[in-house]
């Protein structure tokens, strides 16, 4: 089931399939598209295939079939070029504990090919993600998970890529940090970023996403614009799909 959206997709999965060496089918002919200015949320249980999809976009693994494209570039054919157009935030941002927040930002910005940033640029992006100024020059070893997550998002912002991949970004964040994160995603969408987010957080997905997909056993079992799900109990819907109901059964 592929959602028809007008315009060019920035992130695109075309019958993306991944079967691991041990025979496990982690992703089974998955197709979706995320356009600039859209947030695509993938919901699903552990092992549903969400992280595998992100790994395929980052070319950490090669697809068994199909393609992952970033800005039209097939990731497993031109991985270095494709990765220049995407930023990534992992579930548990660790970074370098002996470096300060600014030093971490500087290193990853340079790695992303951005060499012209000044300390003021780093400070302003850290303030934008909600990290107070007194923490900017402190080593990360003393940071909480929420503070590290903010640094991870700051790194993604500094890369200034047209697409962003977020792997369980709100996992373990307190409600305040989760809300701040939601606001940040809104502003990134406004800037025209195409965002693919995997999450367990149904509430956050409903609040922030433009398109919501539910994944189960490596397949997308539901993919709908969030506007169409307004008024529906997404949690109940999710549980029904997880229980193996068909789309018709679930909607009914």
């Amino acid at each position: 089931m592929m959602l028809e959206v007008p315009g060019a997709a920035m992130l695109e999965a075309v019958t993306l399939t991944k079967r691991y060496e041990d025979g496990v089918l982690a992703l089974d002919h998955v197709s979706f598209a995320v356009k600039p200015g859209q947030i695509f949320a993938m919901l699903g249980a552990n092992g549903a295939g969400k992280t595998t999809a992100i790994n395929l976009f980052l070319n950490f693994i090669e697809p068994t079939d199909g393609e992952a494209r970033i800005d039209g570039i097939v990731t497993h054919k031109e991985p270095l070029l494709a990765k220049q157009r995407v930023a990534y935030v992992s579930e548990n941002v660790m970074l370098y504990p002996n470096f300060t927040a600014v030093q971490n930002l500087d290193y990853f910005a340079r790695l992303g090919g951005k060499t012209g940033y000044t300390k003021d640029d780093y400070r302003s992006v850290l303030l934008r993600v909600g990290l107070s100024e007194d923490a900017h020059n402190k080593r990360l070893k003393g940071f909480s998970k929420g503070m590290r997550q903010k640094c991870g998002i700051a790194i993604a912002i500094l890369k200034d890529a047209p697409a962003i991949l977020l792997d369980e970004p709100t996992s373990g964040l307190d409600p305040k940090a989760g809300f701040e994160f939601q606001q940040l995603l809104d502003s990134l969408r406004t800037e025209g970023k195409a965002i693919l987010m995997s999450t367990h957080d149904i509430f956050r997905a409903k609040e922030v996403a433009d398109i919501i997909a539910i994944m189960n056993n490596g397949r997308i079992v539901m993919q709908e614009p969030a506007s169409r799900l307004l008024g529906q109990d997404l949690e109940r819907l999710y549980m029904q799909y997880m229980a193996g109901h068909t789309a018709a059964e679930a909607v009914a």
């Binding site: 980052l58 950490f60 991985p79 270095l80 070029l81 494709a82 990765k83 220049q84 995407v86 930023a87 990534y88 992992s90 941002v93 970074l95 990853f108 790695l111 992303g112 090919g113 991870g152 790194i155 890369k159 991949l165």
Partner: peptide, 8 residues
């Protein structure tokens, strides 16, 4: 993982 999310 984060390092190799770049074109490195």
């Amino acid at each position: 993982r984060l390092s190799f999310s770049n074109g490195l």
